[in-house]
Design a binder for these strands. Structure first.
Lengths: 227, 227
DNA sequence: CCCGATATTCAACAAATTTTCAGTTTGCCT
DNA sequence: AGGCAAACTGAAAATTTGTTGAATATCGGG
């Protein structure tokens, strides 16, 4: 009878015990949880599952936590919380922890972990707690809906992601390259033209014939302008 | 006093003394109590008896409490309260306890146990104290029944769980993956297609030809819309 | 052990979305 | 003004995703 929160958490640890314990606890708390036993699996799941938070053990065989953390942060916008045993903390480990958004020493209380997760999510994904209002736009990520002037826009998944990106970064010029990386993923093989195509369809749906809302900055990219 | 009719408790402990003591005490309190001496028996009874709360000793010969807890949580929606002797509490045990919904150190007072049971039941089965009404839906978990516009729907067990999940989380988009985890269990081996198949049968039974009640959010999942 | 109900799989189909492409327009520079 | 690269556009092609009907498997009660 758990109330879901729409927050996705990926737990990465090589110890099955801890993995399972965290999975059950967090699931019970209403999170959407997925687990991975090693770094490679974690990277795969990251793309597929798109978690908001990754909980990562520093000490793992093969690729260590630091390596994984570096890749995670490069690939997606995600909060990383690192775990390590208290007696493993030497200078090297301290260094590794710095790439993460937060870290905890084992053993820790479950409540503390929850507190940190919420802190991170609030910080990094404010739109997961109700809708974000930006000028005439209202973004509700839990409903996967964007309203423009009170009307719900009918958007395809890609259109949704693109408009969200543009609106949340209104005022900034976003290059086609950056848009491609953020919306299509850094490993997308196609041409930048696809961004233009999608921008057009967004303009259509926003009735933005004069390109007043989504402006073209020739040679640089696009920028949304709030009225 | 409390309306305890219908609250079923399973007590699992290898010590006959404690078992009997708890059985009598809880029965006297008005609960429907069943007991098991070991993990295997507990698992069997779980399916047959379908308790709301399981009280579980951590230290048991054979399958330990953690193992049992894991299986219980995987199989049914049930609150687990773990018991352990105060001097058995080392870090390992602490970890294990966290998979449970609550835990208590022995010796404990009977009143304390009762308090925790009530807390858990209220938390996890709010509809044991009257049905939950969400828009045109009425969910009665005791009867495993859902009414839609005053009419009882004829649902199979899986349909019931799925509709309950969707309705209780109306407004949120639930991904097929998450639905699979919550309704079929995280270890379900099959394809996501089965979710689609069940969604269809729910839409049939709700007469939701236009998919207005259970909406498809292409690429993301499903969402129920209350009218 | 058989029966009916339920659960699961499968493949064909439908529909929406994504991607590509080529021709056109636009803005900018000299 | 002319050249040129960048941006825009419409539409076809390719791909992905969801829907559906039906076949098959599995479960639980009698």
């Amino acid at each position: 009878m758990h109330q879901l929160k729409g927050i996705k958490i990926l737990v990465v640890d090589d110890e099955p015990n801890i993995l399972q314990f965290l999975e059950l606890g967090l699931q019970n708390e209403g999170f959407d949880v997925r687990t991975a036993q090693d770094g490679v699996k974690a990277i795969t799941l990251l793309k597929e599952f798109q978690p908001h938070v990754v909980i990562l053990d520093v000490m793992m065989p093969g690729m260590d936590g630091f390596e994984v953390c570096r890749m995670l942060k490069r690939m997606e916008n995600v909060a990383v919380i690192m775990l390590t045993a208290r007696d493993e903390v030497d200078d090297r480990v301290k260094g590794l922890m710095l790439g993460a958004d937060d870290y905890m020493l084992k053993p820790f209380s479950f409540e503390e972990l929850l507190a940190r997760i919420y802190a991170r999510v609030r910080n990094q994904f404010p739109n997961l707690f109700g809708e974000v209002v930006v000028g005439p736009f209202q973004i509700d990520d839990r409903r996967k809906e964007i309203k423009f002037n009170e009307r719900v826009l009918e958007l395809s998944p890609t259109e949704y992601e693109l408009l969200k990106l543009l609106v949340l970064n209104h005022g900034l010029v976003l290059s086609k390259r950056m848009i491609l990386d953020k919306v299509w993923g850094y490993d997308f093989g196609g041409e930048e033209n696809i961004v233009e195509v999608y921008i057009r369809s967004l303009r259509d749906k926003l009735n933005d014939k004069e390109h007043q809302i989504i402006r073209t900055i020739r040679g640089s990219g696009y920028r949304v302008e709030l009225s």
